[in-house]
Amino acid sequence: MVVDDEPDIRDIVAAVLEDEGYSVVVASNGQQALEMLPAERPDLVVLDVMMPRMDGRELLRRMGEHPELARLPVIVMSAAARVDRVDSGAPKIAAFVAKPFDLEFMLGTIEQIVKREAPHDTR
């Protein structure tokens, strides 16, 4: 799942993941993501920090309240100079990616995490 309020970022990340054979769902803010997560059960969440309605920090906190969602690996994207300021909350922060990001680097990171987290091929 790609969660970002900026449509161009959301679309390019989703498009590149789809190019690589992943199934991708998108959400435009934390609230929408929280509503979709139980049903979609993604293998990985790529999450922006600053979003309207519900930001990334709050989504992480709320995911932590659900035992199943709390186990999901999350890649946090942030334009903040120091991404480690993000309060990680309960879910596992698999990686931080600073915006503007290198898409190929992010793709490699996602691939590693998915392989590590899922014993079977998730594509």
């Binding site: 449509p7 161009d8 970022i9 390019i12 990340v13 503007p100 990001f101 290198d102 898409l103």
Partner: peptide, 14 residues
């Protein structure tokens, strides 16, 4: 929207 996405896409791909 297209111009913005093209820009974002190129930037993200370095």
């Amino acid at each position: 929207r297209f111009a913005q996405e093209l820009n974002t896409q190129s930037t993200a791909l370095g």
